[in-house]
Amino acid sequence: MKLLLVEDEKELASDISKYLIEEGYLIESASTYNEGREKLSLYDYDCVIIDITLPGGNGLDLIRMIKEKLLNTGIIIISAKNSLDDRIMGLETGSDDYLTKPFYLSELNARIKSILRRRNFSGNKEIIIDEIKMTLNDSQILIYDKPLSLTKKEYELLLFFAANINRVITKESIAEHLWGDSIDTTDSFDFIYTHIKNLRKKILDLGGKDHIQTIYGMGYKFIIL
């Protein structure tokens, strides 16, 4: 999978790249509008991560350019602007997702994976982690071929973990992923704890492995045993 990151803030770009490289992607970076334009005209990418405010031009124009090429490219906008109008404008140009800065890398990672899955029409939309097999079309999960029944939130949580295997995921990022802004974080930690407890139990009950590690005071880590 080949990704292009168009972001003018060098530090941010380098961290995003590092995180995504570890996920196994090929990443190219562009730090100006013209650089991004050049790369987009020369190569094809599976997914493009674009900042709107760029030196030398507007990221939205780059998105229009991708759309003109009629490529099956996933587009994520990362922007400091979070008003509804900005979001609508971003999505109207044809981007798949809009992420407001600052964001969690685990969140960006999960969203990239989700877009890539949606874009990948030919491939089977399956995630296989050890004994867990998730078919995304019908939201079915099998553990050693036995069906696992999860609530909506537990399913979302498992998917979020699956996107960030072997990563420390903070409780805050889980809370934001599951509920957005509409929750007091103190409350959410209890809820997350409950959800994780249930998820872990359901997997163990079907003979699955204990994948979810608790990192005390910080968060969780989904590991492959």
Binding site: D15, T53, A80, L105, V168, T170, S173
Partner: peptide, 20 residues
């Protein structure tokens, strides 16, 4: 207000990387 978000994003990303 917008300009502040980018450095904050850097702090957040850096710390998230460190957590790994």
């Amino acid at each position: 207000s917008h300009e502040i978000q980018t450095p904050l994003a850097v702090i957040k990303t850096k710390s998230e990387m460190l957590l790994q």
